[in-house]
């Protein structure tokens, strides 16, 4: 696929790489949603612990893959990091500044440096805006141009960077295919020159042949602009392809986090193992030989999560102690952390 040629004006400001500080540090992040009952007299009957104390750090230009089953809290975590959802507790330090205690005004300014691409290429773009204005909106919000001509030039460049023709700027979203819409979403996320982009299932809704085009594009852009990605997905093959490190979530918690090769070659948490063994390979000869770990039962409700290790209800190696205390993440090897008492 074709990539950007000339992209000088959208090159992000050179971030402070020399200091050795991570670009992003997340500590003890929690998002608990109140569950209300009653129509007129609403009362809170409980909390959905969508994200329940997660932590990790991210370097410039690095990709962290975030995987886990539906409802495990991936989207909520991504949104809470960008302060699009207010965290219940925890700290998010981005480019040296703590975001959770910032004033809304200051956050709005910071948000320039953090982009997001949403999962649904059909629902996430305003149908009444032209492609050009969808991509250019962040430029207007953050006042990143001085003349109309400069605005048009920047929009044209952004479209080119993601492999679309600048002539498409006057079209509306419904005139684009799914893959093209996802490119628009990426162009928009790039517009304000971010150093971090949260990609929430950016290719899940796309057909495989188109998926590969968008993945290649994301990798090209990362290299070109030294972008850090948080790549949320449920397809573990895609996550391995794009990530430097991978975090596995289950019911609001990170149960394992390690470098890409480590987690795929040496998964230690029983949930990670089951997840990997559930991925079918497009090779019948191999598949016939392969044993699968098939987990019993369903994912428990986050409204009433199991005690102790949240995975114990489905875990093939659980013992009585697993129902007791919540196992903390422990470092079991270089950059390899696991939350399981049996590892």
């Amino acid at each position: 696929m074709t990539t950007a040629t000339n992209a000088s004006t959208v090159t992000p400001v050179k971030a402070d790489v020399t200091s050795g500080q991570p670009l992003l540090a997340v500590e003890g992040l929690k998002v608990h949603f109140p569950v209300n009952r009653g129509f007129i007299l609403q009362r809170t009957v409980g909390h959905v612990k969508a994200v329940d104390g997660i932590g990790f750090s991210l370097k410039h230009g690095e990709t962290l893959g975030l995987v886990g089953e539906s409802g495990s809290g991936k989207t909520t975590a991504g949104r809470a990091i960008l302060q699009l959802t207010k965290p219940t507790a925890g700290k998010v330090t981005f480019e040296g500044q703590e975001l959770t205690t910032m004033k809304p005004d200051a956050i709005r300014k910071m948000r320039r440096r953090m982009g997001i691409v949403f999962q649904d290429p059909y629902g996430s773009l305003n149908p009444r805006m032209t492609a050009g204005n969808i991509v250019g909106e962040p430029l207007i919000v953050h006042r990143l141009f001085t003349s109309k001509a400069e605005y048009r030039e920047k929009v044209a460049e952004l479209l080119q960077v993601v492999g679309l023709s600048p002539a498409m700027a006057n079209r509306y979203p419904h005139e684009f295919s799914g893959g093209q819409r996802q490119r628009l979403g990426v162009a928009r996320a790039l517009a304000a020159r971010p150093s971090l982009i949260v990609l929430d299932e950016p290719v899940s809704a796309l057909d495989v042949s188109i998926q590969a085009q968008v993945i290649n594009l994301l990798q090209d852009l990362q290299e070109q602009f030294n972008l850090a990605y948080i790549f949320i997905a449920h397809d573990l093959s895609v996550v391995r392809h794009i990530s430097d490190r991978v975090a596995v979530m289950y019911l609001g918690k990170i149960v394992e986090i390690a470098t890409r090769d480590e987690i795929y070659k040496n998964p230690l948490h029983p949930y990670t193992k089951a997840l990997l063994s559930a991925v079918p390979a497009p090779d019948p000869v191999l598949e016939r030989k392969r044993e699968r770990i098939v987990l019993k039962g369903d994912i428990p409700s986050p409204l009433n999560p199991p005690s102790g290790c949240v995975f114990h209800t489905r875990c093939p190696i659980a013992i009585d102690d697993c129902k007791g205390d919540v196992p903390p993440l422990r470092e079991v090897g270089p950059e390899h952390w696991v939350a399981c008492i049996r590892v």
């Binding site: 495989v208 042949s209 998926q211 590969a212 993945i215 573990l236 093959s237 895609v238 391995r240 392809h241 890409r260 090769d261 795929y264 990997l276 991925v279 390979a281 497009p282 090779d283 191999l286």
Partner: peptide, 9 residues
């Protein structure tokens, strides 16, 4: 076009 877990990255 698909990345595969059964092949080297």
């Amino acid at each position: 076009s698909v990345p595969r877990l059964d092949e080297p990255a």
